[in-house]
Write a protein that binds this DNA or RNA. Structure first.
Length: 304
DNA sequence: TGCAGTGTTGCTTC
DNA sequence: CGAAGCAACACTGC
């Protein structure tokens, strides 16, 4: 899923229901997903056992987002971080374990074919479950000490939050100059530049600001940096307002789809006419930095 | 049957 | 040192 708008949608949902609840149990069928900070030696079953021990009996204090990570602060001094990677999503509701499978107790959007990929279940004091569903099993749970959370290797390298008030054009310009000879698309995907941007939203913000994904940072005109800065915030806010992007696996915590996929101008629009007003270009697809990029070959010109 | 894929990391090469 | 390419992770769907 999971770029900033999807992770924000999930975080907002969970922060409305989890705080003040106690974690009663933790279940998994894939212990490799769990990691303890500093731990590189323990077998996955032992790691999971210790992870579970730290969570059971603790109360959730808060749920927040940093980049594409969701941070759960607990009452006992621990915290854990969830990263959904490519296909993960977190759900919340009533589930029962039947015939070695987790199934929603009631009718509704939680009844989804993706349920066969449920790999983690937290039981909460309300009787509801927080469920982690992840087709490709790339997602991860990291246990940390709450007071050292910002030093976690999951978070410490992250660039600024693009929707915070302190993220100014000046800050953005400075971040970009960390890699002056890099191409703009891979630099945007680098979480050290700005936290939370992924393949869908980077294509959309480059389309909106009229920048070719292979433009070198040092070749970006000052005006274009500003256009990209404005487009970045507009596109990310648009994603949040749409409830995220469900072109693929993403669902909100109630199992509902977001709508941003209906608003794409570039991402997976290969062969379509460019929808920019007055532009008659065609959207093309090209691998840039190992990821597929979608852009208009007419209004997103490459300046060398 | 083959390959791309919303992400990240680590290794290698230039 | 930095940029770029690639493999690995694991699995589905086209």
């Amino acid at each position: 899923m999971p770029e900033l708008p999807e992770v924000q949608t999930t975080t907002s949902g969970l922060s409305g229901v989890l705080p003040k609840q106690t974690i009663k149990d933790v279940w998994t069928d894939w212990p490799k997903m769990f990691h303890l900070s500093q731990d590189t030696v323990l077998a996955s079953e032992i790691t999971f056992h210790n992870f579970k021990k730290a969570l059971i009996g603790a109360k959730v204090i808060s749920v927040s987002r940093r980049g594409k990570n969701i941070i759960f602060i607990l009452s006992n001094g621990y915290a854990f971080i969830v990263h959904m990677r490519m296909t993960g999503h977190l759900l919340y509701g009533k589930y029962i374990y039947k015939n070695k499978k987790w199934v929603p107790k009631e009718e509704g959007p939680l009844n989804d074919p993706f349920n066969r990929f449920i790999h983690v279940v937290l039981t909460l004091s309300s009787g509801n479950k927080m469920v982690f569903c992840d087709t490709r099993k790339f997602g991860r749970f990291d246990l940390e000490k709450a007071d050292a959370i910002e030093h976690s290797p999951r978070l410490s390298h992250l660039g600024p939050e693009p929707l915070e008030k302190t993220f100014t054009l000046k800050v953005f310009r400075k971040r970009l100059t960390l890699r002056p000879r890099g191409k703009i698309k891979p630099v945007l995907l680098d979480q050290r530049t700005v936290a939370g941007i992924g393949n869908i939203y980077s294509d959309e913000m480059l389309w909106l600001s009229g920048i070719h994904p292979e433009t070198k940072i040092e070749k970006l005109k000052e005006g274009k940096i500003k256009e990209l800065f404005v487009a970045m915030q507009k596109v990310l806010k648009g994603g949040i307002e749409s409830g995220g992007d469900s072109m693929s696996d993403y669902r909100n915590i109630l199992g509902e789809r977001g709508k941003f996929q209906e608003k794409h101008n570039a991402y997976r629009k290969t062969g379509k006419k460019c929808s920019k007003k007055g532009c008659d270009g065609i959207i093309v697809r090209k691998m840039v930095g190992g990821r597929s990029s979608h852009f208009c070959s007419k209004h997103q010109k490459l300046f060398k």
